[in-house]
Design a protein around this nucleic acid. Structure first.
Lengths: 333, 333
DNA sequence: CTGAAAGCGCTAACAA
DNA sequence: TTGTTAGCGCTTTCAG
């Protein structure tokens, strides 16, 4: 293993000078610098990041917490997109990503402990139970944290225009002539309440029947069960808005298996705008979130906190977009 | 920040003793050990992994290379599942995961350089152009590497029973009465040749027409184009096997848009067994790979090399399973 | 512009 | 059973 001492020896200078050459210090002769860089290159020198971290107290590492209690965030179509964007931006800014967990061989540790051990410069959280004590502890810590798809004064975050999203989607259905629209909401978080309000305001404005049914995000079983219950109730609406696209697809499958045609007999919409919706025939009507914007923004926000050494607690909103697919039809008068 | 020195002082012992307490050394008085552990806990001590790594030369970190030139491996439905399993097993064994890339702020570096800088104990590779020079360089290095879904004497790997997979799938179609079966293969890798042979042997055994069409894995555009060309050729087979489930779904959508019904007019099958196939109505016929087995196996294999300090170049095969969905129909005589 | 030296936090011989 | 001490590889202050 080649160290800066080896290079120093080969160049007839000191290790301090070699270090300066690599860290773009100004107080070094340009010729010396070039000589050092050249020799280092020839010798195959690779700086050791842990040694550097030990002395600078900066690891150039961002931790990511992308896990649900039930399923990993990686297999979550929506969050996978976001993580991809986080990764891309982190790399561009020179940071590495590492997963944070509380499993540690046969021991356990908290998320915060993991972050401290690895000395991650910051953390990005998504797809998790934000209200859990451990996550709250992390958000209160000295580590810069950015949450995605979560809204709270306790943490910096990136969220979509959730109110607007459900509001325009509901309006869109109303314009198609729908008067009986069910909104099947996900877990009751601040984000969900935003969406509920968006739905509610659109409905009330037209004095329509407000039908909100509790369900869960990204939950196959629950979605199917709730859909079946709705079918069996004999009081089917003319349109259903599912918590997300994933749920909408399972909902559509459930409806179709009950010989209820989409969109002929009932209109269906989702939320997120993942590729899955495009694969459906006809294409799913949905509200597209800007996953790249969310991920990229989270990374940039986190890095900004790291580099300014200031922890902020601000929320940033990214735009959404209505995607009118073929799963919602215009109602005859 | 609490260090072992702080604890040593508080306990009236030396830092070496504290270190021993934490590393389960035998030569330490059980009482001393307990006192140290207790004090450390009270003081909120968190061991610093980089300091430890610097002196032990082991980082307890495994690098993952999950990226394609075009799209990130994270949004790849099949590989996301595998990565999730890799992560789970790594955590259970006490290892952290970090992404390996060649982007480094505004500089570049090779994958191997990145691994060396971070001193990853091992690397797991998937969803990448294995033939690229940089990946080959990594496989030849001193770092333990495990490849997933790649077959080569140059590296340890985890693969599915690819020959068998396509063989039984083809046989299944033949048993349904199909005599004109197209296999649309993916990129021409060793894995693909295995599958081609599986198809070919089944076809030849029955003296049927062999129709292999080149396409690409996980490629929306190409799949659609190839499917359209097939439709326009006027020589539609009675069944198509797509390179993967993802392609099969786009294929089905393309067929349906051309008013060709699946499975009434044509039968379609995929490969992989991702959830997407289940969401389709009717469910996609496919060959299910054991993603968890692949991921878990890769992690274990990598860790074994790390812990035995022996680099092996062995291939491990995991079983597959035919999933008879509703997209293939029995042909009338 | 260069270098000596101390230190980051922990480990591991080797002595005691 | 415990402690002394010399690193691991790099940074950084400060004197030269």
């Amino acid at each position: 293993m080649v160290t800066i001492y080896d290079i120093a020896k080969a160049c007839g200078c000191s290790s301090a000078t070699v270090s300066k050459a690599f860290n773009d210090y100004a107080d070094i002769n340009i010729m010396t610098k070039q000589r050092i860089l050249k020799t280092a290159n020839e010798m195959g020198f690779i700086p050791n990041t842990q040694a550097r971290a030990l002395s600078t107290k900066k690891t150039w590492t961002i931790g990511v917490l992308f896990q649900d209690e039930s399923k990993g965030g990686l297999t979550h179509y929506f969050f996978a997109q976001i993580l991809e964007a986080v990764k891309e931006q982190a790399e561009k800014s020179g940071y590495d990503l590492t997963f944070i967990s509380r499993i540690w061989g046969d021991k356990k540790r908290t998320y915060l402990e993991h972050c401290r051990m690895k000395k991650t410069d910051g953390v990005i959280i998504a797809c998790i139970d934000f209200e859990s004590e451990e996550v709250q502890e992390l958000m209160k810590s000295e580590i810069p944290v950015v949450a995605i798809d979560y809204s709270s004064p306790n943490v910096s975050s990136m969220v979509s225009e959730n109110y607007k999203g459900l509001n325009i989607l509901t309006q869109f259905l109303i314009q198609l002539g729908h008067k009986d629209i069910v909104y099947m909401n996900g877990h009751l978080t601040a984000v969900t309440y935003e969406r509920i309000n968006g739905y509610r305001d659109a409905i009330r404005k037209e004095n329509l029947r407000e039908r909100i049914i509790n369900s869960k995000y990204y939950d196959r079983k629950t979605t199917i069960a709730v859909t079946k219950a709705l079918i069996e109730s004999g009081d089917l609406p003319t349109a259903i808005i599912y918590p997300d696209d994933y749920g909408a697809l399972w909902g559509i499958k459930t409806l179709r298996e009950a010989h209820i045609r989409v969109p002929e007999d009932i209109s269906v919409a989702g939320f997120d705008g993942i590729e899955l919706g495009e694969m459906l025939h006809p294409r799913l009507t949905t509200v597209k979130q800007d996953m790249r914007g969310l991920g990229r923004g989270a990374a940039l926000k986190c890095i900004k906190m790291i580099e300014t050494k200031k922890i902020t607690k601000t929320e940033t909103t990214v735009g959404i977009e209505l995607v009118a697919g073929g799963t919602c039809r215009k109602l005859d008068k």
